[in-house]
């Protein structure tokens, strides 16, 4: 489903990704962990073509990205199959919650309005926000906004979902509601790649953990193999074993 082979990316003189290779199985949850600036988010953004790269290949959801400015294909086709959720939500502030969710299915998939709407209502219900359909994103809490963003990405029925530190911009009190949604998705068999600092979450949901540092894969394995808690349980200060 996901196969990254010797991915290398430079930013100026700096090598931000250095011959990164990894695999993600169909239905699996791959967690990208490691220190800030280690290349996790850049790798994730390469996976849906938001960033280009200089060497290597990416196979994802049946599409192949190669080195070069456009990755060798019309990126909008790839992105229909690879959804993304951002740290800062990036909801469209001029659209209501429901219109945020129906926009892409209508504009890209050309779904009839009714069908897009019922799909959106189902997804908002799934993230617990059906009653907020008519609200403006600006009136929602951060946790609610991130759940809308997840519903928005799911509305395209992507084969792979990418999460870029989905709870980092949230108050601790709101992270649980978002993580629960992601864990539910994982249990339902959604293939996904998650950049996270939250090792307890990684332990709970990830089928495969990849640790990146200074642009290189330091190690990879199952969550049990790689992660153990240093102080207590559920803390975000967990260390790599």
């Amino acid at each position: 489903m996901i196969e990254v082979e010797s991915l290398t990316k430079h930013r100026g003189a700096k090598t931000v990704l250095d011959r990164v290779s990894l695999r993600g199985a169909e239905g699996g949850v791959t967690a990208l962990v490691g220190p800030s600036g280690g290349g996790k988010s850049t790798l994730l953004r390469c996976l849906n073509g938001l960033e280009s790269f200089e060497a290597g290949t990416i196979d994802i959801a049946g599409h192949r990205l190669v080195a070069g400015p456009h990755g060798g294909l019309p990126l909008d086709h790839l992105r229909r199959d690879v959804g993304m959720v951002f740290q800062q939500f990036n909801l469209f502030p001029h659209l209501s919650v429901i219109d945020n969710v129906t926009l892409a299915p209508r504009a890209v998939l050309k779904l009839p309005a009714e069908e897009a709407r019922s799909r959106a209502v189902g997804l908002l219900d799934r993230v617990g926000l059906a009653s907020f359909a008519a609200a403006r994103p600006g009136t929602l809490s951060g946790g609610q906004q991130q759940r809308v963003a997840i519903a928005r990405a799911l509305a395209m029925r992507p084969r792979v979902m990418l999460f870029d530190e989905p709870t980092s911009a949230l108050d601790p009190s709101m992270t649980a509601e978002v993580l629960d949604v992601i864990v539910d998705l994982a249990r339902a068999g959604q293939t996904m790649v998650v950049v996270t600092h939250d090792h307890s979450f990684a332990k709970r949901a990830a089928t495969w953990v990849v640790e990146l540092a200074a642009g290189r894969v330091v190690r990879q394995g199952t969550a049990d193999e790689l992660l153990h808690e240093r102080r207590g349980s559920g803390g975000q200060e967990a260390a790599i074993a």
């Binding site: 849906n48 959804g83 990036n90 926009l103 395209m156």
Partner: peptide
């Protein structure tokens, strides 16, 4: 904000 453009692109627009 650039994030708006990226969010739209990542939805396949």
């Amino acid at each position: 904000p650039l994030g708006q453009f990226e969010a739209a692109l990542s939805l396949g627009l």
